[in-house]
Write a protein that binds this DNA or RNA. Sequence first.
DNA 1: TACCGCTACAACGTAACACTAGGTACCGGT
DNA 2: ACCGGTACCTAGTGTTACGTTGTAGCGGTA
Lengths: 109, 109
Amino acid sequence: MSKQATEMLKGTLEGIVLAILAGRSAYGYEITTWLRDQGFTDIAEGTIYALLIRIEQRGLVDVEKVPSEKGPPRKVYSLNAQGQEYLNEFWRTWSFLSDRLEQLRDEGA
Amino acid sequence: MSKQATEMLKGTLEGIVLAILAGRSAYGYEITTWLRDQGFTDIAEGTIYALLIRIEQRGLVDVEKVPSEKGPPRKVYSLNAQGQEYLNEFWRTWSFLSDRLEQLRDEGA
DNA sequence: TACCGCTACAACGTAACACTAGGTACCGGT
DNA sequence: ACCGGTACCTAGTGTTACGTTGTAGCGGTA
């Protein structure tokens, strides 16, 4: 992946995953494949798992172990109230940044 | 500053500064105050200077020392061809990310 | 003269995060 | 018995923004 994309993902990837979980519960492998389908072809699996553990430890998500037909049991994550609040804050921060950047791109100054 | 904003700035701040320099030449202190005016109230001075040194070493900007009426001489930065190309790449990367996020926000999934 | 505040730049160590590159384990089909 | 797909996890590395501190020139003021 381009170094630009890597750095730009810092902070936003967390928001992306939380936003996904706001729509529906999901497990790590599922999120990874979904991201790949969306065009994030170069996001490493390990990155997602590390991120999920982080947000779990921060208490932003609830976890449930669900046995799978194939392979080891799935850890299904779902956004809880605290996570929703954190996600709202994320959208506010991102909107601010997004607005500034759009302005810069249009005005050229 | 919120930790979210801090992380989200990684990668984007560089693009922001390059975008500013695409519009006009500027020196560190000027950029810092401009950013503060734009609402980036918590960006540290040291952060900007470190960033400017980085992009200078990568050859994205040209530098000219200009004596100042007040204080030490200014290092005036201006975007060169390579920097412009890098900036274009930045916009492409950012557009991709921005599109995905807008989609997530609207669909809620 | 002595001091303060503003301008302008730089250096040092720290925390957070995504990446690379592995590893473990379970299952079905050949 | 083996391989590929599913599903999860860990250790170490590099980049980046932050906080803090330091240097230095200049103008105003007491």
